[in-house]
Amino acid sequence: MNDESVKERLVECATEWLATRPRETLTIRAVATAAGTSTAAVYSLFGNKDGLIAAVRDEAVAGLFAAVTAVPATEDVLDDIYALAGAYRNWGREHPQLYTVLFGGVQSFEPSGTVGTGDPVRPLVQAVDRGVVESVLDGRARAIALSLWVALHGLVTLELAGALDTPTAQAAFRTTINATLRGWVTPEPARRLRRAELGGGIRSQT
């Protein structure tokens, strides 16, 4: 087993541990045992426990960043914001443990554009910035982005906890994102959002 495969296995085991147990219970010995390797491998590959935890978080940040940056920009910024929100939700559903680690208290996080070069919510902030510049959104970009993130995080967290079945979560996603955006848009986009909500959302595919 080469160093890269050992590293991947250690990150995987640490991710599972951090997603299901308090951070303070994680030990290098426990993770090494779960990964079928030695404590020396952890020290060699990550330096210490904090380095291992940072590697888990880095993987989560990189994964979510890749998912949202894969969303292509269009001429309609509201469509783009909706699509970015959908990509965020889909990544959380597909990677529940990494999502829990990223937003579950391993390290504080806010959409400020300061979390490394791969800030996972930066594309959403940039789309909101564009909406403000184009006079589609009315307000401070950071406040708008934060309100969207809060709505998204609540939805994804409830869905991952099993509180919402898929059809209910899908419907809640459409109405919640539309309603959040409608609170910030200028009059004409607001009317379009209302029509879209009645018709099933700006984009029906997420």
Rank of each mutant, 00 (worst) to 15 (best):
F103G: 07
R192A: 12
G201Q: 04
T20W: 00
L124M: 14
D138E: 07
A67K: 03
L18E: 01
R93K: 15
F103L: 13
L102I: 05
I53G: 02
A40Q: 09
E59V: 12
A60Y: 02
A163I: 14
V132L: 11
A161F: 01
P187Q: 10
R9W: 04
Y99V: 00
E197C: 12
W17F: 14
V150G: 15
D50C: 13
W184Y: 11
L124E: 14
G201P: 10
L146R: 08
A55K: 13
T206D: 12
E12F: 05
G116K: 14
H153Q: 11
T176F: 01
A41R: 11
L181Q: 05
Q107T: 11
E16G: 02
A151E: 03
T186M: 03
E110I: 02
V68D: 12
A190F: 01
V156K: 02
D80Y: 15
I28P: 10
F103Y: 11
T157V: 08
V128C: 11
M1R: 14
I202R: 13
L18G: 01
R195N: 13
Y88I: 00
G199A: 13
W184T: 03
T186I: 09
L124Q: 07
Q107P: 08
E59F: 08
G201M: 04
A14P: 08
N48W: 09
H153M: 12
C13A: 13
